[in-house]
Amino acid sequence: MTVSHSHLHQPGHVSITIQGADENTVLDFAYALALRNNVSGPGQPWQVPGRPGVNVQVCGHLEPADEPGPPGYGAAVADGCQCQMPS
C-alpha cells in the first residue's frame, strides 16, 4: 500500500492506520472518527499477508472542522491525503 503524505510536514496533520478483526469494524470506526473530528473518510481496506485482520488509513488535522459533516469532508484535512493500493 502506498500513501500520499506530502502534507504531513505541516504542523497539525496526522495519518492514522486503523487495524481491526474485519472490514466492517475498521470501516465503521473510521467513519465514526470522520463524523466527530476533522478526519478524512477511510482509504481502501487492505490486509497484510500472514497477519490476521484488516487495516484502513485516515488522515486528520488538529484544527476543528467548521461544521460536522459526512466522512471525507473535513475542512482542514489536506486534499493530498489519499490511500491507494499498490498497482
Rank of each mutant, 00 (worst) to 15 (best):
P52N: 13
N38F: 04
E63V: 09
G53H: 08
V3E: 12
F29M: 11
P70E: 14
N38R: 07
A21W: 09
A75T: 15
N24W: 04
G80H: 08
I18L: 15
Q57G: 00
G20W: 12
A30R: 04
V48L: 10
V77E: 02
V54H: 05
P42W: 00
Q19P: 00
Y31N: 15
N38C: 15
V39W: 05
I18Y: 08
N55F: 11
V54Y: 02
I16W: 07
C81A: 11
H5P: 00
G43R: 01
W46K: 00
L35Q: 09
Q47V: 09
G72T: 11
N24R: 15
Q44K: 07
L8A: 13
Q84Y: 03
A30S: 12
I16H: 07
L27N: 14
G60F: 06
N37L: 13
H13P: 01
H61K: 07
E23F: 07
M85K: 03
C59E: 02
L27S: 11
Q84E: 12
G20V: 10
D79P: 01
P52A: 14
P68H: 06
A32D: 15
T17F: 10
Q57H: 07
S6F: 04
H7G: 03
A32L: 13
Q82T: 10
S6W: 05
H61Y: 07
G60V: 06
P86G: 11
A34F: 11
N55E: 10
L8G: 10
P71F: 04
V26A: 09
C59T: 02
Q47H: 04
G20I: 12
H61T: 02
L62M: 07
S40Q: 02
Q44R: 07
A65I: 00
S87H: 07
P64K: 06
V26D: 03
V39P: 01
P71D: 01
G74S: 03
C59Y: 15
L33K: 09
P64D: 04
E23N: 06
V56P: 08
V3S: 08
A21G: 12
A75G: 03
H13Y: 09
I18P: 03
Q19E: 14
F29A: 15
P45F: 08
G72V: 11
D66M: 06
N55L: 12
G41N: 10
Q19Y: 13
Q82G: 06
G74H: 01
P71M: 01
V39R: 02
A21F: 11
L33Q: 12
V26H: 05
C59Q: 03
D79F: 06
S4Q: 12
G60L: 10
G20D: 12
G53R: 08
V14Y: 14
V14I: 13
G69L: 05
E67M: 12
S40I: 01
